[in-house]
């Protein structure tokens, strides 16, 4: 069999959470603290990006592991659902795979063009018009000018915003905004598409349309990783799933099996 299109090996990511210091007890102490504030602030800010060996081994109450030694593989053409409660590490995983942030430990191997819908419309600027935003966010997501041009009409039709093309998107309704954002993203034609909960918005008709688009994506043999709290959609869309909890991989396998365990745990 061919190499997996995504291979994650012991991916880990830690963040510093910042603890509140103790309060001064005497006036003298309060004054001394006031004077030394800049020094303490500097130390605190520097620590934001520096982790001690002890902390990296897993100690330290000031750090949180968003992901801890998560390994899995995704084959080409798979539609993988990712489930887990809030703070399970799902979005962190997407951020690492899309290179927004780098892992603290472990590695991921990616064999294809990947694009990530972490938050639809993140590449939009509110003051720009719909037309301008299609070009800008398309470029931000890695499309060439030529690609955007050839897909332009299709994007506009998909988003159903023909009338508002030259209106600044800050005046769009939130539904129009999200439709346009999603329309740009699904016309990227990546080999791997990461989708994070974007279907939670838009009306039912548009949700259906998006689902349809995602399914046709999958039929074309592209790989999709899909985060959702809606287990019905996951079961409907995905063939396999992974379950994350507190940064750790609980289980990976066929979608029905994982969802059933996840729902009954």
């Amino acid at each position: 069999m061919a190499d997996p299109i995504i291979k994650a090996h012991e991916l880990s990511k830690c963040y510093r959470i910042g603890l509140a210091g103790s309060r001064p007890k005497t006036l003298r102490e309060a004054i001394m603290r006031g004077i030394s504030t800049p020094v303490r602030n500097l130390a605190r800010l520097q620590k934001l990006t520096r982790f001690t060996g002890e902390e990296l081994r897993g100690g330290g109450e000031d750090v949180i592991w968003s992901l801890r030694n998560v390994s899995f593989e995704v084959n080409e053409g798979d539609v993988l659902g990712i489930v887990g409660g809030n703070g399970a590490g799902k979005s962190t995983l997407f951020k690492i795979l899309s290179r927004v942030t780098e892992p603290t430990g472990g590695y991921a191997e990616i064999n294809g063009r990947l694009s990530c819908l972490l938050e639809a419309g993140a590449g939009f600027h509110p003051e720009l018009t719909g037309r301008e935003n299609i070009y800008l966010s398309g470029a931000v997501l890695g499309m060439t000018k030529h690609e955007i041009k050839t897909k332009f009409d299709e994007i506009v039709r998909f988003a159903e915003i023909e009338k508002f093309l030259d209106t600044p998107v800050k005046r769009f309704s939130s539904g129009m905004y999200i439709r346009l954002a999603f329309a740009v993203a699904v016309h990227l034609e990546p080999d791997i598409l990461l989708i994070d909960e974007v279907l939670a918005v838009g009306d039912i008709a548009f949700q259906k349309k998006c689902l349809g688009k995602i399914k046709s994506f999958a039929r074309e043999g592209r790989t999709i990783l899909f985060i959702s709290h809606n287990t019905e959609i996951i079961k409907n869309l995905c063939n396999s799933a992974i379950w994350l909890n507190n940064g750790r991989l609980v289980k990976a396998g066929a979608v029905d099996e994982i969802i059933e365990e996840y729902e009954n745990h």
């Binding site: 899309s98 290179r99 990530c116 972490l118 590449g123």
Partner: peptide
């Protein structure tokens, strides 16, 4: 900030 924490480039 939003762009930087959401999209890679």
């Amino acid at each position: 900030m939003k762009l930087i924490s959401r999209i890679y480039f």
